[in-house]
Amino acid sequence: MEFEAIAQSLVNAGRFLASQGWAPATSGNYSARLADGSVAITVSGRDKGQLIPNDIMVVTLAGEPLGSGQRSSAETLLHTSLYQAYPEVGAVLHTHSINCVSLSRWLLSQGQTTLLLTNYELLKAFPGITTHDGEVAIPIVDNSQDMVALSETVLTRLQAVPAPGYIIAGHGLYSWGATVPQARMATEALEVLVSCALQAILLDRTFA
Rank of each mutant, 00 (worst) to 15 (best):
G67R: 11
G67W: 11
G67V: 04
S68V: 09
S68E: 13
S68Q: 07
G69Y: 02
G69Q: 05
Q70N: 05
Q70G: 05
Q70R: 14
Q70M: 13
Q70K: 14
S73L: 12
S73D: 05
S73H: 07
S73W: 02
E75S: 00
E75R: 00
E75N: 00
T76H: 05
T76V: 13
T76Y: 02
L78T: 07
L78R: 01
L78W: 01
H79W: 00
H79Q: 06
H79P: 07
H79L: 09
T80G: 03
S81Y: 00
S81W: 00
L82T: 13
L82W: 02
L82Q: 12
L82R: 12
Y83D: 07
Y83F: 12
Y83N: 05
Y83E: 08
A85I: 10
A85E: 09
A85R: 14
A85M: 02
Y86N: 04
Y86I: 00
Y86Q: 01
P87D: 05
P87Y: 00
P87M: 05
P87T: 02
P87W: 03
E88S: 14
E88L: 07
V89Q: 01
V89W: 01
G90T: 06
G90I: 06
A91H: 07
A91C: 14
A91T: 10
V92L: 08
V92D: 03
V92Y: 04
V92S: 02
L93G: 11
H94W: 08
H94N: 11
H94S: 09
H94T: 09
T95W: 08
T95Q: 06
T95E: 05
H96Y: 01
H96C: 04
S97K: 11
S97T: 13
S97M: 08
I98F: 15
I98Y: 14
N99M: 06
N99G: 12
C100V: 12
C100L: 10
V101P: 03
S102T: 15
S102M: 15
S102P: 05
L103M: 08
L103W: 07
S104Y: 01
S104K: 01
R105V: 13
R105Q: 15
W106T: 15
W106N: 09
W106S: 11
L107W: 02
L107S: 12
L107D: 03
